[in-house]
Amino acid sequence: MSSLPKQVKIVEVGPRDGLQNEKETISAEVKTELVNRLTSAGFANIEAASFVSPKWVPQMATSKEVMAAIARKPGTIYSALTPNMQGFEAALAARADEVVIFGSASEAFSQKNINCSIAESIARFVDVAKAAKDNGLRLRGSVSCAFGCPYQGEVPLDAVADVVGRMRDLGCDEIDMADTIGVATPRKTQAVMERAAGVFRLDGLSGHFHDTYGQALANIYASLEVGIAIYHSSVSGLGGCPYAKGATGNVATEDVLYMLNGLGIETGIDLDIVVDAGQYISSVLGRKGSSRAGNALAAKRAG
């Protein structure tokens, strides 16, 4: 068996990626409480906000308030999604530690979503990338549809490598390989990760897996075997997948932690506090969370 990383960084994306698709408006107070609970659990990186137009993502309209109210822990990276310079300026004013830019590996997805080519979409981030560096902020790039696309199906490995190279050239510190629609399986995952690692440092690549087809944990394990040591997950499995009706979105943090703990891989995160945070946000949303480990551990506790 190939040796797995001894330590893994988990990027908690629930407060942003997880909540942004919720139909009912969630108050800034609830989002702040969620971020504070996740901070106390020990996450090194929390995606807390998104400075996009409220017209497009109404749920993220309170990002400024949330970033002002959270109890920050030294050493914890609080990230914000920034689609343009206006978003960047807002993130800078809100004292974000890291800004996130994004592009698709699928030409069809890029055209359908933002009416421009992949190359054009990433060229738009030149100013944001430069501003991030000039202001001493971390810069993260996210590659959507790296494993498959709802419109074109297969995404060629060459297309993935091309986008990773463009993100690298913008100066990204970290690049996420995102399975936006959750179609990846383990061998495909390894092929994509290995190809990306040929273009960018292995220790700067991360896996962002959706659990639409129940493959996320298997894909994380497959990525561990390649040497990927950064993963994105969402507390309580928050976040739907807009391209597959009724499908789950992000892999649940509790499930990932349960697996990593069982493998003896260090994360520095307290699973019990994450379970509590998952139960908290699920009760606010008025539904049971979709983390199997979280629900099982909560039920066991309740006795």
Rank of each mutant, 00 (worst) to 15 (best):
V235C: 15
D272C: 00
V274T: 03
L263Q: 10
D255M: 13
A49K: 01
P54T: 14
V226M: 05
M85H: 05
G182C: 06
E107H: 15
D179T: 09
S234Y: 03
F200N: 02
S53V: 13
L38F: 06
A218C: 08
F43N: 00
Y78L: 12
A96C: 08
V52A: 12
A105F: 13
K31I: 04
M259N: 10
L238Q: 11
A105R: 11
I10A: 01
I70L: 13
S291E: 00
C241T: 05
G289K: 01
L157K: 00
A132K: 02
Q20E: 03
L137P: 03
G278K: 02
G239S: 08
D276N: 11
D97I: 04
S40K: 13
A244Q: 13
Q279T: 06
D17K: 00
K55H: 11
A247F: 12
D162P: 05
V13K: 12
S63V: 12
I70H: 04
S206P: 03
G240M: 12
V8K: 09
L205I: 14
P186Y: 00
P156C: 07
A90K: 09
I10V: 13
L297D: 06
F209P: 07
Y221T: 08
D176Y: 02
A96D: 07
M85E: 15
Y258P: 03
K73R: 13
L271R: 01
V128T: 11
N115F: 11
N219D: 14
D158W: 00
T76S: 06
A105C: 15
A196L: 06
K300M: 06
A96W: 05
A252Y: 00
V128P: 03
A252D: 12
V100R: 07
K300G: 01
S40E: 15
G198N: 10
A68R: 15
M1C: 07
D270F: 08
I77P: 00
M259E: 08
E29D: 15
Q59L: 08
T39W: 03
N135E: 11
R124T: 00
G153E: 03
E98L: 14
N135H: 14
M67E: 08
E89P: 00
V99M: 05
M1V: 10
G14I: 11
A222N: 04
G294F: 00
I77C: 07
G42W: 13
P156K: 04
T248K: 06
T248W: 01
N135M: 10
A132G: 09
I281D: 03
G75T: 13
A93V: 12
H210F: 01
G136I: 11
A41H: 01
G75P: 09
V163M: 02
D97N: 15
Q279S: 05
E47T: 04
T189I: 03
H232P: 05
K188D: 09
V284G: 04
V57N: 05
